[in-house]
Design a protein around this nucleic acid. Structure first.
Length: 99
DNA sequence: CCATTGACTCGGA
DNA sequence: GTCCGAGCCAATG
């Protein structure tokens, strides 16, 4: 894989519990602030094999970006378990939980 | 190699 | 607060 992809994966794995990161933020740390979409792609495609904590990754609006209902609930639940407050619509307080 | 895709972002209405 | 359009770019087929 490309260095970008590997970095993204590594960064995601280092997100502390009870905290979240946005796609753009991760993309920036990986070296390409504009590649936020790839971060998302990598997330959902690599999550199976690498067991990434993808649930700690949300979009810049502070909301869960998943459109699939089941996946959405799974992410929301996982975050709550880790102590992150998540609104009914997947809204998260970035000021408080973003790394 | 070219075209499409997407768990995004930003700025404007 | 919401909705839209344009921009970006690695991965996929």
């Amino acid at each position: 894989m490309t260095p970008f992809t590997e970095k993204v994966i590594k960064i995601i794995q280092e997100i502390p519990e009870g905290k979240v990161m946005t796609y753009g933020q991760i993309a920036g740390l990986a070296g390409n602030p504009r590649a936020s979409r790839q971060v998302a792609r990598i997330l959902h495609s690599m999550s199976r094999k690498h067991r990434l904590p993808w649930h700690r990754v949300i979009n810049a609006k502070g909301k869960i970006a998943v459109q699939d209902e089941e996946t959405f609930l799974e992410q929301k639940t996982n975050l709550i378990i880790e102590g992150v407050e998540v609104g009914e619509k997947g809204i998260i307080n970035l000021e408080k939980y973003q790394v």
